[in-house]
Amino acid sequence: MITIVSGLPRSGTSLMMQMLAAGGMRVQADELRPADTHNPRGYYEDRRVKSLDVDNTWVAEADGAALKVVSLLLYELPDDLQYRVLFMRRNLEEVLGSQQKMLATRPEAAPTTDMRLHFERHLERLSDWLPRQKHLEFLEIDYRSVIDDSHAVAVSVASFVEQDLEIDAMASVVDPSLYRQRHG
């Protein structure tokens, strides 16, 4: 069984990876993307995920571990393995605002328009697709609830992944001061 942490970029996926690592779960990640001002505690990514649509033969290596996979690449996970997906949800205005700050530091990025609409459609399609997949179970987690009650979220996550994780350690990594893009 592989635990997948997924969602849109800036929806709290790195935070969830930190929680799992703190709780004692092995995380499948490399150190190739260093921590920066956007993710001061690191990205917890495996570089190979970025080209999952080209090569997904290595994914079985993550058996028993947590692997971060951006939402659009969930379709590319091999369907002969089993997954539990922790899907992070966050207010889209906050996601867009936070992404905009990242893009400002990446001038090479191609401009995109109407992203709110495109993300809404993408999430709608995923919401339709996810429950129909036999190779994965999923649990949606609201980013705000992680900030507001990290302990309760840690309990639900540990129960969902069916692992004896250290709840207090998971909850303790949540730093509300890093919740910088608030909307409403």
Binding site: P9, R33, K50, S51, D53, V54, V70, L72, L73, Q99, M102, L103, R106, E108, A109, A110, T112, T113, D114, M115, L117, H118, F119, R121, H122, R125
Partner: peptide
């Protein structure tokens, strides 16, 4: 939309 999402994710460094 998913083509636009892909472009955005590439821009952010999440997809090659």
């Amino acid at each position: 939309s998913e083509a636009e999402v892909r472009k955005r994710l590439q821009g952010l460094g999440y997809i090659d």
